[in-house]
């Protein structure tokens, strides 16, 4: 199977949205869309599934909460209990109110950082990562839709030309 893709460029988000809907209606497969800013409703129009990253954040937060409870229970109650200022730390439940601020902070710390790390890993973002956008203008004012060539190439190109594209390119996708 060939790895040929057609890159259709648009200079307006509304034209792009209509084009995405038309291409999908014509049963062509949209490989990718690159946009300079978040275009609302584009993911739905492309048929992308919703992201589950918020769920991971919740789970990470739970981990942080449990970790902080374990940590403070171990350090303050079990490993080295002390009588600080006449307030002995011999029972977790009695000391618990003083642990609430750090329980909260650790929950937020774990949820935020692990979620962002998950996002960076899943979207392949890290230092020294080479950018893969097909055209430097896609971070400025160009919207690029990549459609896989599957069958008649000329037919696809002429179809895309009618969707309001300003530039069109056929390339090999690696």
């Amino acid at each position: 199977m060939s790895n040929k893709v057609v890159q259709a460029m648009y200079n307006d988000d509304d034209i792009l949205m209509d084009a995405v809907k038309e291409v999908r209606a014509a049963k062509y497969h949209i490989e990718e869309v690159y946009t300079p800013f978040p275009v609302h409703g584009l993911d739905k129009a492309m048929g992308l599934k919703g992201t589950r990253i918020a769920i991971t954040a919740f789970l990470y937060g739970c981990v942080g909460l449990v970790f902080s409870i374990w940590m403070m229970d171990y350090m303050m109650i079990r490993d080295w209990p002390q009588d600080i200022g006449g307030k002995p730390s011999f029972a977790f439940i009695q000391n618990m109110p003083a642990f609430v601020p750090i329980m909260f902070e650790m929950t937020v710390f774990f949820a935020a950082h692990l979620m962002v790390i998950t996002f960076y890993m899943r979207s392949k973002l890290w230092p020294f990562k080479e950018a893969e956008n097909p055209d430097p203008r896609t971070t400025d004012d160009m919207f690029v839709m990549e459609v896989i060539v599957d069958g008649n190439e000329d037919e696809l190109v002429s179809f895309l030309k009618k969707t309001g594209t300003v530039e069109i390119k056929v390339t090999e996708k690696h």
């Binding site: 275009v39 993911d43 992308l48 992201t51 996002f119 979207s123 973002l125 020294f128 971070t139």
Partner: peptide
């Protein structure tokens, strides 16, 4: 500094969700 950001539709979807949760 840009971590190889390309502006894929899926990345933007995650980006917006991450921003909202953060």
């Amino acid at each position: 500094l840009s971590f190889g950001w390309t502006g894929r539709a899926k990345d933007w979807q995650r980006f917006e969700e991450v921003s909202l949760v953060l």
